[in-house]
Design a protein around this nucleic acid. Structure first.
Lengths: 199, 199
DNA sequence: CCTACCGATCGGTAGG
DNA sequence: CCTACCGATCGGTAGG
């Protein structure tokens, strides 16, 4: 059994992702953990403090895992593996993507500040590599490296967040695999095809 | 001055898009319209009924405007104009995109049913045209037409919904235009570049 | 970590 | 379209 604080954070993450911050009562989080509401408010002095802790924990996890995943992937096969790691990271727990989208909608200016600190450095690193590859003629000449990186993140995070609703838009076709596999495969194909110089 | 019902629907659309359904009180909608809460509940018998009416109205509008826009655009220049019309439709009122994303997160199964009725026919029409163009060798051979159409919708709707948060990820670069212009330009470039056979 | 309790706000109704 | 009011639930506190 882990620390109570971590149990609270886990339950809050799940419920905030599913019902949103305003759609989740402190009472319901306490019930999920198996304690009373005032006990929860001893560990986190307010519901808003809990929300910020949930986001901090998630973005910390992101900043620890993603470098590891992406660098390991980049060593073998640059593009395919990196994309699969990125998609896989969010797909293994879609609540991560849902929280990011929800907070961007609910508190855009606060989320702006967070994304500036956590995600923008990544965009810059990727964009620099793309710009160099472009100057060597490996990547399409008319690309906007930063905007490309942002669009890929948007496709992945936005796509995973509403993956259950996107499914219904695809007719089932067993030859092509599950709808989720088709979404991921096409996303990666689009990202690759709009990046490299043909041939 | 328009019908009170339409004023209520307009205020509700704006507030639901900004704060979410659970983050918006009936009281706050009534205040925005300038009437009392019980008066609002005379026109819409419950908050949930109001929510469904807001969605119905928006998707009706979508189904009336988009065919007109897209067919008009398709006549002159197939791809560029159609994409610009699609992006423009959501960008001219980002609340449309935000409502769709919010409902997909809050009530995925109900939204599944709606998207199946309203959006899937469009996906099928576009996918059929893409499949024919592919068989003629105009479009990339390894495309998944339906999945491509869904990803483009996801990029547009998801991108517009959180456009204010995406801005901060792009460094300002006056030579390239506003961040919004760069986002839209790169989105269209990616969609085109991952569609047509090079050359 | 609990019981007991607070004022404020919620969606909704009665009655005119 | 209004005033007056309902029970339920909200986030949070006192006190142990």
């Amino acid at each position: 059994m882990q620390d109570v604080r971590d149990e609270i954070l886990g339950a809050a993450t799940r419920l905030f992702a599913k019902h949103g911050f305003d759609g989740t009562s402190v009472q319901s989080i306490a019930e999920a953990v198996g304690i009373r509401k005032p006990s929860l408010l001893y560990h986190f002095p307010s519901k808003d403090e809990l929300r910020r802790s949930v986001l901090d924990q998630m973005l910390d996890h992101w900043n620890q895992e993603l470098p590891r995943l992406l660098l390991a992937a980049a060593r073998e096969e640059r593009f395919e593996k990196v994309m699969e790691s990125l998609v896989g990271f969010f797909l293994e727990d879609p609540d991560r993507a849902r929280l990011i989208v929800r907070e961007s909608l609910d508190r855009p200016s606060e989320m702006n500040e967070r994304l500036g600190r956590f995600v923008r450095p990544w965009v810059e690193v990727v964009a620099d590599q793309l710009a160099r590859a472009r100057d060597k003629g490996l990547v399409q000449a008319n690309i906007d490296p930063q905007a490309y990186a942002v669009q890929v993140i948007n496709m992945v995070v936005g796509g995973v967040a509403i993956v259950d609703s996107l499914d219904v838009l695809l007719p089932n076709d067993p030859k092509r695999g599950t709808t989720r596999e088709r979404h991921v495969r096409e996303l990666i194909r689009m990202a690759r095809s709009s990046l490299y110089v043909p041939g």
